[in-house]
Nucleic acid binder design. Structure first.
Lengths: 355, 355
DNA sequence: TTGTACGCGTTATCAT
DNA sequence: ATGATAACGCGTACAA
């Protein structure tokens, strides 16, 4: 381990030094080191010895130049706050390391000149995973024209780039139907900004679809801004203010909003789920910790990231075929906030925090 | 925006094509493009036009080879689960983008051949931020011998590499003294694995020091494994089982443990803080949301990451001088779980979740 | 099986 | 102010 003492400050050896030391040509070093063509066993041994003695590692820049590839990909995301993006990126990282390559990251939230940043990034990797609404369609189109392999994540397909998503409509139908059929609710409300993200729009559509199937009139399209706990608090307060006609259940576009709604209920002396049911989306670690356990929908975040990266590699390796888009299933997680029995609220391992 | 239509599939133009089009030599293109030496205004104009028309961007590989630098750094971390590492990495990313460079990431948790991964990584960037106990000291020493610029984060200095940390001992003294002096507690317990991380060890030492100053006998050194919610639950259950002599306050090494301890208390019919006080460390987003608001210590996570990256850049730019290590202050966050009045538990914006 | 020589796209030095 | 040209480190035809 930790290759040996080639003196302090000594410049990194290059392929020529290795060749000299092993008394072969650089071509042979390259062959040995890449494990490619046939090399006589004895020669290979000598070369390997020289590599080890010198602590030689091929220069990525030189190799990138010669091979015309970077052995690296990048993921573009809005922000690292919250568990969603971090988990997805972790999935990308898993798949990337598994392939023996490197992962670059770029956050776009509140950053000027994002287009330029993305173009620069595109030129130092072999492909890009682009999450959510972080990059303009026009930029994606331009990248596609430049033949930059692209995979989209949690966002509709654009510029013929394949996309990886998790199910929204189906679980939304399932969740809403659960509230209607199992718990007998008739006045539901949807909390979330339908126009801000396709994911949310699809959840809303599933919500409406469930009403249609139950022959119930869906509530009017919600107007609300934001995804934050405070937003959920405000919207829920307003909803609860409608007196006797207040909704019996709040279907929130994410767990943050749902937690805010729970707080709003508490602040008005309403009990969840006895006085009002609340559901979330994402299954953040809080969801199972805060009483009552939040009924929500779990997206396979890490798998989403890994799948996107693998799709990207496929796209890189076979420039020809466009791999199809992928839809990963989401899982309904029934806890107590919808009104179901508590049943000891699952396990409590959260994998948060550190030493 | 989005440079123009140089036909589909057209190969990326290189500096020669630009030179041809502008009717200059590649040297001039390089000069213009780098903004270096003097170039006649008219010439510059022509070159700029050619660059724009062709959508030229210099190849990072070519540049890296010529300049012998990568314009990129990497951060090595254990895992992306939980808010701590994600926030720190976000800080690194801020500082990196601010400098116009790129950030590579490598997670080591549960990964085989970490040493090799790190060595590979080191060869494709200009320097490394290494977090926590992710990499063996021997590997760090080897990297240092190879003249790889290194900055350590949240870990004691090794191999003469500067380190960035947040204060542990001082806030631990402050927190413990608060419990002793303000709330009059005399039987405290420390929850956390003191031997697993230097950070935790320092928090423990601060805890002991506060006892010393108050002329109180500190409890025996705790034996506990893990940092997780479930670990806190288990340890706290055991502590509460000691009957009348049970601790009046639990000082936990992080918020996860503290939340587990709270749950343990609940499960035994003990109220927090009325029957037992609990404090955490980190101020994760849960800390202010779960009732009662958790008294904890806030580390400047994002600033830690940014500071580490900037220190690394300094180290890269001035190979000679070793920048000194940095210690960033941590902030005591008093909420209700220590027994202080609730006072409407601060704001509720959490920045978690997404659309 | 092995070696020679060229190309990859820049930067930088040295002439002019 | 501008142009030739030599590195930079590697992969790989092609030749031997």
């Amino acid at each position: 381990m930790a290759e040996g003492g080639n003196g302090v400050g000594r410049a990194r050896p290059n392929i020529y030094e290795v060749a000299d030391r092993a008394e072969v040509s650089i071509a042979t070093v390259s062959r040995v080191q890449r494990g490619s063509s046939a090399v006589r066993a004895e020669t290979r041994r000598r070369v390997l010895a020289a590599i080890k003695e010198l602590g030689y590692r091929p220069s990525v820049a030189g190799r990138a130049l010669a091979e015309r590839r970077h052995a690296a990909v990048a993921v573009v995301f809005p922000t690292l706050s919250g568990p969603y993006y971090a988990e997805v990126i972790a999935g990308c990282e898993d798949a990337t390391v598994e392939r023996g390559e490197s992962l670059l990251i770029l956050g776009t939230h509140r950053r000027p000149r994002v287009d330029d940043l993305v173009f620069d990034l595109a030129h130092r990797v072999d492909g890009l995973v682009v999450m959510g609404q972080t990059v303009d369609d026009a930029v994606l189109a331009a990248l596609a024209r430049d033949a930059v392999p692209l995979v989209l994540l949690g966002r509709p397909s654009v510029a013929e780039a394949p996309s990886v998503r998790s199910a929204n409509a189906a679980p939304a139908v399932e969740l809403t139907t659960h509230l209607i059929a199992e718990h007998g609710f008739e006045r539901l409300a949807f909390v979330g900004d339908v126009d801000s993200a396709p994911d949310v729009a699809e959840r809303w559509e599933g919500f409406v679809e469930a009403h249609r199937r139950a022959r119930l009139e869906p509530p009017p399209r919600p107007v609300s801004a934001g995804f934050r706990e405070a937003d959920g608090f405000a919207v829920a307060r307003a909803a609860f203010a409608s007196g006797a006609n207040r909704p019996q259940a709040l279907v929130c576009a994410n767990d943050e909003l749902a937690l805010g709604a729970c707080r709003a209920a508490r602040s008005l002396g309403l009990a969840v789920p006895d006085d009002v049911a609340v559901t979330g989306w994402d299954d953040v670690s809080l969801a199972r910790l805060v009483p009552p356990g939040l009924t929500t929908v779990r997206q396979p975040m890490r798998e989403l990231g890994a799948a996107a990266a693998r799709l990207l590699f496929e796209r890189i390796d076979t420039a020809a075929a466009q791999p199809a888009s992928l839809m990963l299933p989401s899982e309904l997680v029934i806890r107590s906030s919808c009104g179901c029995a508590s049943e000891q609220d699952t396990q409590f391992t959260t994998d948060e925090g550190r030493g």
